[in-house]
């Protein structure tokens, strides 16, 4: 069996006296949509930040496709196929919608001296904008998009790099029910095309119908994982959410 797509072992990260991550270990297998749930403050976003190189871990290892990532750096990881969205969607407000995709094409240093828009990048970007129903807005500044559209744009831009694993931080928080269904549809379509996802989400209905397996964190460590039905029935999980 080939190595899992992402494996973290014994990650620890403290903020002063608070252990945001404490001996946290989990695995994301290929072609899964893995759900990551847990009460507020359980360390989900810290885990995202550490895995994507935005925060240094105090201890532990990160392995991507079986290879240890010695010094995680967001840009390098992106080019290796690991990327993320943010809880509050982050798009480049001054750039146009199309440019937000172009800049995310994951080209290396040497390309900086090349043209601003490469024909192949433009083709990919336009196809993605069409897929996400944003084509009509291609030349508008991203700052004119609604909150939900920004979430879509942020997601669509990541796909420019044909990622193998996308970490989604609350993809449907704060958007209307129609947009929730739109987002779910896009995740499912991309999953069917072979992309794996690790999804932090508070909408339990969505998690239960979209994700398998589901991983539950509390107090900076993983306390349960498995198929959604099993996790839901796990007394440890109920305890973590309801506070025993």
């Amino acid at each position: 069996m080939s190595a899992p797509l992402l494996e973290v072992r014994g990650l620890a990260r403290r903020f002063g006296g608070v252990a945001a991550l404490d001996d946290c270990s989990l695995t994301v297998r290929r072609s899964t949509v893995t759900g990551l749930i847990g009460p507020n403050g359980s360390g989900k976003t810290t885990l995202f930040n550490v895995v994507t190189g935005y925060l240094r871990a105090d201890a532990g290892q990160i392995l991507l496709e079986g290879r240890r990532v010695a010094r995680p750096d967001p840009a390098r990881l992106y080019r290796r196929g690991l990327c993320r969205t943010f809880q509050q969607p982050r798009v480049f407000a001054d750039l146009s919608v199309l440019e937000n995709l172009l800049i995310a094409s994951g080209r290396r240093r040497a390309a900086l001296a090349g043209p601003r828009v490469r024909a192949d990048d433009r083709d990919r970007a336009e196809a993605l904008l069409a897929e996400f129903s944003l084509a009509g807005l291609a030349d508008d500044p991203a700052e004119e998009l609604s909150y939900g559209q920004r979430k879509l744009l942020e997601f669509a831009a990541l796909l420019m790099s044909s990622p193998s694993l996308v970490l989604l931080d609350e993809p449907t928080a704060g958007v209307n029910p129609t947009m929730v269904r739109t987002m779910e549809r896009h995740i499912r379509a991309r999953h069917a095309a072979g992309t794996a996802f690790l999804v932090v989400e508070h909408d339990m209905n969505l998690v239960m119908r979209l994700c398998d397996p589901v991983v539950v964190m509390a107090g900076g460590r993983v306390i349960a994982q498995g198929p959604p039905g099993d996790v839901q029935a796990d007394p440890l999980v109920l305890d973590a959410y309801l506070g025993g």
């Binding site: 994507t52 190189g53 935005y54 750096d73 967001p74 840009a75 992106y78 080019r79 990327c83 993320r84 943010f86 982050r90 798009v91 480049f92 407000a93 001054d94 750039l95 440019e99 172009l102 800049i103 995310a104 094409s105 994951g106 080209r107 390309a111 900086l112 001296a113 090349g114 043209p115 601003r116 831009a157 990541l158 420019m160 790099s161």
Partner: peptide, 20 residues
């Protein structure tokens, strides 16, 4: 592409790192 990268850096440098 350098120009595009600089504008992205000005807008949100951490996000720019996150998209490679």
């Amino acid at each position: 592409r350098l120009g595009l990268a600089l504008l992205a850096i000005r807008a949100d440098e951490d996000k720019a790192r996150g998209v490679g």
